[in-house]
Simulated assay, not measured.
Amino acid sequence: MHLPVMPPVSPMLAKSVPTIPPGASYEPKWDGFRSICFRDGDEVEFGSRNERPLTRYFPELVAAALRELPERCVVDGEIVVTGARGLDFDALQLRMHPAASRVRMLAEKTPAAFIAFDLLALGDDDYTARPFADRRAALVDAMGETGTSFHVTPTTTDLAVAQRWFDDFEGAGLDGIIAKPFTIPYQSDKRIMFKIKHARTADCVVAGYRVHKSGADAVGSLMLGLYDENGTLASVGVIGAFPMATRKTLFTELQSLVVPFDDHPWNWGGHVQEATPRGAGSRWNAGKDLSFVPLRPERVVEVRYDHMEGGRFRHLPQFNRWRPDREARSCTYAQLEEPADFDLDDIVPGLGQRR
């Protein structure tokens, strides 16, 4: 492979801001695997955000790149998988499997798509020093008509349209909005774009904790639960960003709530391989030891989160405040805001048809 921009490349990043800034190019924030695709003739590689290769996990995209991309190019984008209600990150995560036979089966069962949103190189030309407005125009021209697997993300310069996208597109599983200044060059691993994500709060039950990895008498993370419509306490995620002093204080405070597993609604045992309630397992590492200290489900914490997926927090929520005024049984899914459904085909024509 001989391209003007060679792998590995760390993608350009975005920093969080609370509102959509004026005077920029706006596009949807896709919820998938960030990837840079390199094609040089018959050679295709997909790199990840941490510069690790993703190529072997998406053979259908390798074949599609040979059909749909310019013969020599480097394109930044997002690998996504669609489901019945829009983007399906859980199905995408399952694609990261070590067995080649499993990868081939999933490539047929849950084929991925690539959403392109920046151009780093085309032919013999390095585009990274050019302003984003020029790169975007060249990307649209190079990609031509939308293919079956590779799509160019929509953009707008209208702030009102961007705000409408921010409100509506969440119903299709998108993350928010990316704002890109027109003049920025492509700067690898630099946070010079802006991302605007949904910000919400939820009151959750603290149902257990894991001990800090240091082995000290300190809390590593708190396990969160919500009651479903049947009155069952479901596992929805964890919070763990605490100073060490707080971790030690929490460890002491929580000892009075420790109960045996037999008296706890999550009587799983020690590992995720055993039967667990909805969302109890690790979506990242199926072999990870998820043993925890069970607590009497009485303490309530308010957390900040962006959105839910499959009954769990899609991204790691953040501690907001303790809620001593709330009864644990009042912490139900009913408090959560449900975005209205939105069809992926109304964002990128043909993308929803992959479901």
Score class of each variant (00 low, 15 high):
53 P>L: 12
53 P>H: 11
55 T>D: 11
55 T>H: 10
56 R>L: 11
57 Y>T: 07
57 Y>L: 11
60 E>S: 03
62 V>N: 06
62 V>R: 12
63 A>T: 01
64 A>R: 02
64 A>L: 05
64 A>S: 11
65 A>G: 05
66 L>Y: 02
66 L>R: 13
67 R>N: 08
68 E>R: 08
69 L>D: 10
69 L>N: 09
70 P>E: 11
70 P>Q: 10
70 P>K: 11
70 P>W: 10
72 R>G: 06
73 C>K: 05
73 C>D: 03
74 V>G: 04
75 V>P: 04
75 V>I: 15
77 G>H: 04
78 E>D: 04
80 V>G: 03
82 T>A: 12
82 T>K: 04
82 T>L: 04
83 G>K: 06
83 G>V: 06
84 A>N: 09
84 A>G: 07
85 R>M: 07
85 R>N: 12
86 G>V: 00
88 D>N: 13
88 D>Q: 04
90 D>E: 13
90 D>V: 14
90 D>S: 14
90 D>C: 05
90 D>L: 14
91 A>N: 05
91 A>M: 09
92 L>N: 10
93 Q>S: 15
93 Q>I: 14
94 L>K: 15
94 L>H: 13
95 R>E: 11
95 R>P: 01
96 M>S: 14
96 M>I: 15
98 P>H: 10
99 A>M: 14
99 A>P: 00
100 A>V: 15
100 A>Q: 15
101 S>N: 14
102 R>I: 14
103 V>R: 15
103 V>Q: 13
103 V>G: 03
103 V>F: 12
103 V>L: 11
104 R>L: 11
104 R>M: 10
104 R>Q: 14
105 M>L: 13
105 M>Q: 13
106 L>D: 03
106 L>N: 02
108 E>D: 01
109 K>I: 00
109 K>G: 00
109 K>V: 01
110 T>H: 08
110 T>A: 02
110 T>N: 09
111 P>T: 05
111 P>E: 03
111 P>G: 04
111 P>D: 03
112 A>R: 01
112 A>H: 02
112 A>S: 12
112 A>L: 01
113 A>H: 02
113 A>K: 03
113 A>T: 01
113 A>R: 09
115 I>Y: 01
116 A>C: 15
117 F>P: 03
117 F>A: 02
117 F>Q: 01
117 F>M: 01
